[in-house]
């Protein structure tokens, strides 16, 4: 059974009529890193939001199976408990809510939904501090409110920290490279690579090939007008980088 199987998925913004995803089909296997590339407006972020269950979007057709179970009817927190993680393109600031409070609440919420007891605080502290150190996240950042006053790079590293704590089955990285300088990009990529395992899948959404130099994909899909129009190996990303999207999109159309 595939880790993620998306069948003929169509979706639109709840308040508008225009379809953004138009019969999208996509399969991600366990252990696989699948890159999704596409021009602006092709539906990349919509795909990540629809999979994570954002209310602004309405699924009009199709299904998305995580480990064989359709997740589209589940609330966002239920999907998270099933092991789906979205690293946001624009991580949200939550003033007044401390990072540690947030991380602990999230971790324990998932543990509880999976029948586990809360993680004892000393163990939790040790875990967070360890992961934070690997990602170059300072104690000061851990003391601040969630994402408040963080630079773009700090926010992205913070997303990876959350991913490392929650150990999802399927991680969707939505334009994680945007707004990162090369050093930050390396740190983030190292964090992701460290988590690659035969049981886990990644969907890496990006506009540029650059990120894929650091996170080597197993397969590259090209998204255009809400559908996957081409699938290939890592060389496809290089081809896109060299020729631009117009060429491939044009051929497919």
């Amino acid at each position: 059974m595939s880790l993620l199987e998306i069948k003929n998925l169509t979706a639109k913004l709840a308040e508008e009529d225009k379809q953004i995803l138009n019969g999208l089909n996509l399969t991600v296997e366990k252990g696989q890193v699948a890159a999704i590339m596409g021009p602006n407006g092709s539906g990349k972020s919509t795909l990540s939001y629809v999979l994570a269950g954002r209310e602004d979007y309405e699924v009009t057709n199709g299904e998305a199976l995580l480990d064989g179970e359709n997740i589209l009817e589940l609330s966002p927190d239920e999907r998270a408990a099933k092991g789906l993680f979205l690293a946001f393109q624009y991580p949200i600031e939550i003033p007044g809510v401390g990072q540690m409070t947030f991380l602990k609440a999230a971790l324990n919420a998932q543990r509880r939904k999976n029948g586990l007891d809360d993680m004892p605080t000393p163990e939790f502290m040790k875990l967070v501090n360890g992961r934070a150190k690997e990602l170059g996240i300072s104690q000061d950042m851990l003391r601040r409110s969630v994402n408040v006053g963080f630079s773009g790079g700090e926010k992205k590293r913070n997303e990876i920290l959350q991913m490392a704590l929650l150990q999802p089955k399927l991680a969707i990285l939505d334009e994680t490279d945007s707004g990162l300088d090369i050093d930050a990009l390396k740190i983030v990529a190292d964090g992701v690579n460290a988590m690659r395992s035969p049981d886990r899948g990644f969907v890496v959404i990006t506009h540029y090939q650059r990120l894929l130099d650091y996170i080597k994909p197993d397969v590259v899909h090209v998204l255009s007008a809400g559908r996957i129009i081409k699938t290939g190996g890592p060389e496809l990303a290089l081809e896109l980088e060299a020729k631009g999207y117009a060429d491939i999109v044009g051929k497919a159309a």
Binding site: G53, E55, S75, D77, A80, F88, A109, K113, L166
Partner: peptide, 24 residues
């Protein structure tokens, strides 16, 4: 949405955000 994506239920998310709102 951010909180719920990280696994908090709607009620937990509200409690968390409101507690942040009143923290000062």
């Amino acid at each position: 949405f951010y909180c719920m994506q990280r696994g908090l239920t709607q009620e937990e998310a509200i409690a968390l955000i409101v507690n942040g709102f009143v923290k000062d």
